[in-house]
């Protein structure tokens, strides 16, 4: 697997969250994603970017375009140095929110991606990585 391209973007405001949607869309288009796949990965990115801003107190997105023999992929890593998540099982559950949300962001992003990983330690921040493949 080869990393074709690698870039970072800040996530500090709701304008930044909107920019994340735009740039993830551009990358998905350039990797040849179908319209439905573009929409799925942009939606997942929007959820995770908002979590980074709202709960993580801001952070950043790292985008990587991946290439293997048979497919191309987009890996998105959202990281913050916020309070972290104490009870991961609870946070991943649909309908659970410590804010005013519907509690769909994490579970939804997991369903919308092909691979999903979350790493969080109370007091040390949160990192969420999703990967969406495009069959060639």
């Amino acid at each position: 697997m080869v990393v074709l391209k690698d870039e970072s973007a800040p996530i500090r405001s709701s304008i930044d969250v909107m920019r994340v949607r735009q740039i993830v869309r551009e990358w998905a288009v350039s990797l040849g994603f179908s319209l439905v796949d573009q929409t799925k990965v942009v939606t997942a990115a929007s959820e995770l970017a908002r979590n980074t801003m709202v709960y993580g107190g801001g952070g950043e997105l790292r985008m990587e375009a991946l290439n293997s023999d048979t497919r191309r992929g987009l890996r998105l890593t959202f990281s913050d140095q916020g309070p972290g998540i104490a009870d991961m099982e609870q946070a991943m559950k649909d309908g659970f929110s410590t804010g005013a949300g519907l509690g769909l962001g994490l579970g939804g992003a997991k369903r919308l991606a092909n691979e999903f990983a979350i790493d969080s330690r109370p007091g040390q921040g949160t990192t969420v990585t999703i990967l969406r493949w495009n069959k060639l």
């Binding site: 769909l104 939804g108 919308l112």
Partner: peptide, 8 residues
């Protein structure tokens, strides 16, 4: 399609 998968 995406909304359904999101759970909304």
């Amino acid at each position: 399609i995406t909304l359904v998968e999101l759970g909304m």
